[in-house]
């Protein structure tokens, strides 16, 4: 395009590119292709992406997110929900709730999307070794924590007892039901699921996810807990975990804020002194505990 400027084409064909964004600027996406797509619930889809160019993506880890760009619509932060041991493909689970997420959910295989990332902190997989691990997820909050479950299944001997408690609004809103059944079949994992409002076909537990916590088997003196879901769920789940004897500094939470850049430059995601995009999204509970007590922070 001749616009009177010195327009440079920054498409990155360089196989030395190590991040999923254009090497000329972390604010400019790299281009990925939708390999496949699957429906999770009535409003939630998973998409599998691979890099258009045969270039390496930097290692991504459980808990991190990418900024996904839908052409002409915008960009939103979406957690990586796939298996991080497969560094070839990136899986994202997206709930269709806004303009950009709608566009992303409507992508077809072969469509291209922009990807910047991976950004943010990770679940503390190393610090969990040798401990009982309690995983609490709510709603779409199972997606950012699913890579942890994959990781544990692949490195089962590194961890002690593992308990997963997942709450959803209704049975039809549960993510990954088949996979949950599969995790359940592992004798060395406790998997408990609950819904707020049941349908007649539902033969499982009814009640909020916090009510599952006292029924999980763990040794509170040697347990780490990971919590992901809306902030209000995190607040009550943490309260219940602590009242069940888990040490507050053994609890990690994944926070959500408005994010525009993913690299701490646009200011939107501030929570006290933290930039949730780069100091988070995964925080040790004790680092953010004080912020939970301040309204409209």
């Amino acid at each position: 395009m001749q616009l009177g400027y010195n327009w440079l084409i920054y498409m990155d064909n360089d196989s030395n590119s190590i991040m999923a964004f254009n090497r000329h600027s972390p604010l400019i996406p790299g281009i990925f292709e939708v390999k496949s797509k699957s429906k999770e619930t009535h409003d939630t889809w998973s998409i599998v992406l691979n890099n258009k160019e045969p270039c390496r993506v930097e290692t991504f880890n459980p808990g991190q997110f990418n900024m996904l760009y839908a052409y002409g619509t915008g960009e939103i932060p979406i957690s990586i929900s796939g298996d991080c041991s497969n560094q070839k493909y990136i899986v994202h689970t997206i709930r269709d709730v806004g303009k950009v997420s709608h566009a992303l959910c409507n992508l077809k295989s072969g469509d291209q999307v922009g990807v910047r990332g991976p950004f943010g902190t990770t679940w503390p997989m190393d610090q969990l070794k040798g401990k009982d691990v309690v995983i609490i997820g709510g709603g779409i909050g199972l997606a950012p924590i699913r890579p942890v479950i994959f990781h544990i299944l692949e490195n089962r001997d590194d961890y002690n007892r593992v308990a997963i408690a997942y709450g959803a609004r209704a049975p039809e809103e549960m993510l990954y039901p088949t996979q949950i059944m599969d995790w359940r079949s592992h004798l060395d994992m406790q998997v408990r699921v609950t819904v707020d409002s049941a349908s007649p076909k539902w033969h499982g537990q009814v009640g909020v996810v916090t009510t599952l916590i006292p029924r999980l088997n763990f040794n509170p003196d040697n347990t780490a807990a990971l919590v992901c879901g809306p902030e209000i769920m995190i607040r009550f789940a943490v309260k219940e975990l602590i009242s069940n004897g888990i040490n507050p500094d053994e609890i990690w939470v994944s926070m959500e804020r408005n994010m525009k850049c993913g690299i701490g430059l646009s200011g939107h995601c501030q929570m006290g002194s933290m930039f949730v995009c780069k100091d988070g999204p995964v925080f040790n509970y004790m680092d953010v505990e004080r912020y939970f007590r301040i309204k409209e922070l």
Binding site: G138, G141, G167, E173, V208, T210, P230
Partner: peptide, 12 residues
């Protein structure tokens, strides 16, 4: 209290 949380739709 648990019922109240059910009412809030904490997974929204």
């Amino acid at each position: 209290n648990a019922t109240r949380l059910q009412l809030v739709d904490i997974y929204g």
